[in-house]
Design a binder for these strands. Structure first.
Lengths: 168, 168
DNA sequence: GCATTTATAGACCGGATAGTCGGTTTATAA
DNA sequence: TTATAAACCGACTATCCGGTCTATAAATGC
């Protein structure tokens, strides 16, 4: 709280006047961040036509913004045992907000014949897991090598789910 | 500490007689767990011939053991800012212990012609990221649906990296 | 100009918890 | 029996930190 207070240039009393608790403040900022991420994505994806192009762009967008400490904190928080269930539920709701974007993309790709038809939910979690998991490489490689890694992983993923008829 | 004390059936004084700090105790257990995991893997992988078979088995082994709270804690800890750099370094060292297993497997697969030749390090982080990332699906799906998800992700990965000549 | 609401400030509180310390028990050996 | 060391115990301490409280200042309305 003291760091937040200093960064905000406000007093503790003032912060607590506007936010019920540290948790509430956290969720508020998390939601704002997520909304911003989704808006950015809307702008990025608008001109893109194929699901393939969108998938590359989505991976890049994910890589650039999901590295922020907020998301790490959210993940960490979701594993905490002392956390209030209501807060946890709200956290999950915010975190899950971007699932439909991935889901829709995958469905579109299957519809257009770019991707092979398969269980969407299963594929969704594979993609989501891949995107989230690649983040740990951030500690190992630098920030500058993360982008190429995401792209490379999409190369592999695409080859793995591309329908047999299509050719790259 | 109080929970640890109770679970251990020992007193705080006794625990601190054997371990310098909570951190040290944590690292000790983490190392033990990692060693056990590697030993188990040695037993599992011994009879397996192809890199493909090994990859499926490794994914399963990863899924079953890396769900434990210890690994979550380790990851969480590695993101902590207050942590002592020396402790952090030791943590990373322990965590990285299983990298060579993955790396060797991938190299073997390329050598045998099962996998296409490519940058091993890059592929390593993709696979590592995928394995680690799928863990978050644990919260969404139950424990019983995690195994199939890991298998499915290997299906896709394999199709993505299989050398063009080979046929599945 | 006065009253009321809104906002800010920061000293203070209290629960939680990693770590300490003096003292006791148990095991080993002389 | 006695001496020494290894292991153990739990009350206590120091500190951190989220949250509260009271006092004030600024804005808003009549």
């Amino acid at each position: 709280m003291d760091e937040i207070r200093e960064a905000a240039g406000a007093s503790k009393g003032s912060i607590y006047y506007h936010f019920k608790s540290k948790e509430e403040l956290f969720l508020y900022i998390l939601e704002l961040t997520m909304l911003e991420w989704m808006n950015k994505w809307a702008a990025i994806s608008a001109p893109l036509r194929t699901a393939t192009d969108k998938l590359y762009a989505l991976a890049e967008h994910f890589a650039s913004d999901f590295q922020n400490p907020l998301m790490k904190a959210a993940e960490e928080f979701s594993g905490s045992e002392t956390a209030d269930p209501a807060v946890l539920a709200r956290l999950m709701e915010i975190t899950r907000a971007h699932y439909p974007i991935f889901r829709q993309l995958l469905e579109d790709g299957m519809e257009s014949g770019e991707f092979e038809r398969m269980d969407v939910d299963e594929l969704l979690y594979v993609v989501l897991g891949l995107m989230g998991g690649l983040g740990v490489a951030y500690y190992e490689l630098g920030a500058e090598r993360i982008g190429p890694l995401y792209r490379r992983s999409i190369d592999i993923l695409l080859r793995g789910i591309r329908s047999s008829g299509a050719d790259g």
